[in-house]
């Protein structure tokens, strides 16, 4: 049970972005992909998640828990995403943002509200359900976004420099918050970053992405 990339490469308008990449992320661990800016780290995550823009093509395979998801629509891949901007939906309250991620299989208003409240509490955001996401601090937003992603019960997690916009103290806190939730959820996670400290804090392997 894992996330496996098999000779994955991305061809854009200017040719291949990087050398074919093969790696495997075991469940409950975070593998870090490092590389200079502009090499295509975010595009790699787009390819894995199924969000490639027009003009980009992925070659190779993305295998999740033994299932080849390469040609599947993003909403059916069960791969969660985290960006450096939390990207909470600006029109929804914090609680509704979390509820957006909660699968419809959790039925009943009370049951859904309870799950959301529990997640808010886990994130140290108890009582923040009705708040405007714009009124949250950077760290609070990041935690809310991670909980939203985890509530969707993804089979894997992609992290696109999620700590880079936070200041140093918050960064440490959020690294351990993220790592512990990945371990608890027992899912594979792939982090792209240019900060070596991120890689060290996540404890998993490090892969260099090169042109």
């Amino acid at each position: 049970m894992s996330l496996r990339l098999e000779a994955l490469e991305i061809v854009g308008p200017g040719g291949a972005l990087f050398r074919p990449l093969s790696l495997e992320v075991a469940r409950g661990t975070v593998v870090t992909v490092m590389g200079p800016s502009g090499v295509g780290k975010s595009t790699l995550l787009d390819a894995i998640g199924g969000h490639l823009a027009h003009g980009f093509r992925a070659r190779g395979r993305v295998v999740l828990n033994g299932r080849d998801v390469t040609g599947i629509a993003p909403e059916r891949r069960r791969i969660g995403l985290m960006f450096q901007d939390a990207l909470l939906f600006p029109h929804l309250s914090v609680g509704d943002n979390l509820a957006f991620g909660l699968p419809p299989s959790v039925r009943g208003r009370a049951a859904r509200a309870a799950r959301v409240d529990q997640a808010l509490e886990d994130a140290g955001l108890a009582g923040f359900g009705d708040r405007d996401p714009a009124s949250l601090s950077g760290g609070q937003r990041a935690r809310a976004a991670l909980m939203r992603t985890l509530l969707a019960a993804p089979d894997a997690l992609l992290l696109d420099e999620p700590f880079s916009k936070l200041d140093a103290g918050l960064r440490d806190e959020l690294r351990s918050f993220t790592r512990s939730h990945v371990e608890t959820a027992r899912i594979p996670a792939l982090l792209v970053t240019h900060d070596p400290e991120d890689a060290a804090a996540m404890g998993g392997g490090v892969v260099q992405l090169g042109a």
């Binding site: 787009d46 998640g49 199924g50 969000h51 823009a53 629509a73 993003p74 909403e75 059916r76 891949r77 069960r78 791969i79 969660g80 995403l81 960006f83 901007d85 990207l87 939906f89 600006p90 029109h91 929804l92 957006f100 991620g101 699968p103 939203r148 992603t149 969707a152 993804p154 992609l158």
Partner: peptide, 28 residues
Amino acid sequence: DPRLVNAAAALGASPLRRLWAVKLPVLL
């Protein structure tokens, strides 16, 4: 921001739900 829509897709929202529940309200 297309990442906002990608985030909704990553949470399992279908194209129709991304339109109704994210794009149209944000672009109201």
